Simulated assay, not measured.
Amino acid sequence: MSKQAKGIFLAAVGAMMWGGSGAAAQYLFHDTPLTTNWLVAVRMLGAGIVLTLISLFRNPQGVKRLLTQKWSLIQLVAFAIFGTLNSQLTYFLAIRYSNAPTATVIQYLQPVIIIIWLALVNQHWPRRIDDISVVLAILGTFLLVTGGRLGSLTLTPIALFWGLWCAVAAAIYTVMPVKLLKEFDTFAVCGLAMLIGGLIMSPELFITHVPHLTTADWGMVGYVVIFGTMAAYSMFLGSLNFISPTTTGILGAFEPLVATIIAVSFLGTKLTTAMVIGSLLILATTFLQAIPVKKNPLTK
C-alpha cells in the first residue's frame, strides 16, 4: 500500500468511526441517564491511558522528551485543554441538545473559522474562493438552523451555542498540534492530551453515581471509548503523516455522512429538505478549500 493510499484509508476510516461515535452518543444521551461530563471523562481517560501506554511501548524516550522539554510540555497542556478537551466536551454537548448529524455538520464550519482567523492575524483579505466558502457556510448555517424559514428555529438557542462553540474548538484542535505532530509520535501527542483532559474531568467520576445501563448500553460506551475515540483520533491524526491536511479534511466528510445514516436509520432522527441542503452547503466549504488556486503574479 502506497503512502497516499495508507493516508486516505486512515483518514476515511477514522472519520467513519467518529461518525459512529456521534450516533452512539446521541443514543446514550437521549435513551439512558448518562451525563455528558461522565461520558467525556470516561472517554478521555480510557482512550488516554491506552494510547499513552502504546506510545510508551513504541517510543519511551520520545514520551520522556515530550514531557520534559518546556516548550513541548506547554504546547501539549494547551492542546489538551483548548484543543482536545474543548472539542470533546462541546461536541457531546451539541449532540445532547440537538442530534449527531446536526452537531457534526455545524462542527464543519471550522474551515471558515480558520479562514477568518488567518485573515485577521495576517491582516489581509481572504482569497476569492475563501469568500465563496464563507458565504456558503453562512447560507448553509441559516438553512440548518431555521429550516429556511425566517423567524423560526429548528435548533434551540443552547444547541446552536454549543454547536458553534464546537466548530471553534474543532478549528483550534486542527491548528494547535501541527508543530507537535511534526516533532513527536502521534500516539504520544494524542494519548497524553487525552489523558490530561481526562484527569481534568476525572472529579466527575467521583461526584456522579455509576449509571444503571444495560449490556448493550455499556457496549455503546465501549465503542465510544475504543473505536470512536482511541482508534479514530489515532488514525485521523496519523493520516497527516502521509497526506496533506486538506485531503484529510475532505475525507473527514465521512463523519457527518455516517452519523446521519445511523441517526436517521436507527435513532429516528428527522431532517428536513432545507436542513439537508444546508448541511451540504457547509460540507462544500471543505471541498472548496481543496481546490488549488493559482497565485496572481501581480500580487505579493
Rank of each mutant, 00 (worst) to 15 (best):
E255V: 06
T269P: 01
V221T: 13
I196R: 00
M176Y: 12
A216M: 06
W218Y: 14
N241R: 15
M220E: 02
S239A: 11
L251E: 03
S234Q: 03
T208K: 13
F227G: 03
L199I: 14
A259H: 02
Y223E: 03
I262P: 02
T269Y: 08
I262T: 01
G252Y: 05
T215E: 14
L205V: 06
G249A: 12
M275T: 05
T214Q: 13
D185M: 07
L257T: 12
T208I: 15
A216K: 10
I226Y: 04
L205S: 05
G228C: 06
A170G: 00
I196D: 01
E183G: 08
V168L: 15
A216E: 13
M230K: 08
T273M: 13
F206C: 09
G191Y: 05
L213Y: 11
A253M: 15
L199H: 00
N241F: 06
D217H: 12
A231Q: 02
F227H: 04
G249K: 12
P177V: 11
F206W: 12
G268E: 05
T247S: 12
G249W: 08
H212R: 13
M201E: 10
A263G: 15
G238M: 04
L240S: 08
P245Y: 01
I207R: 14
P256C: 11
P245E: 07
I207L: 09
A231M: 13
A232N: 01
A193F: 08
G197H: 04
I172M: 08
A167F: 10
H209P: 05
T247L: 01
L257Y: 12
F266H: 04
A167Q: 06
F206A: 07
D217Q: 13
F187D: 05
M176F: 15
D217P: 04
V168Q: 07
I172T: 14
Y233F: 14
W218N: 09
H209L: 11
Y173H: 12
S265G: 03
G238C: 12
L192G: 00
A259I: 05
M176C: 11
M176K: 14
S265P: 00
L195F: 12
A232W: 00
M235K: 00
C166G: 07
A253L: 14
T269D: 04
G219H: 12
M235Q: 00
V221N: 12
A263Q: 00
T272K: 04
W165V: 09
E255Y: 07
S244P: 05
L180T: 06
S279R: 04
A259K: 01
A274S: 10
K270I: 06
T208G: 11
A188Y: 07
P203F: 14
T272N: 02
T186V: 15
L251Q: 05
A274E: 10
V168R: 05
H212N: 13
C190W: 03
I250P: 00
T273P: 00
S234F: 10
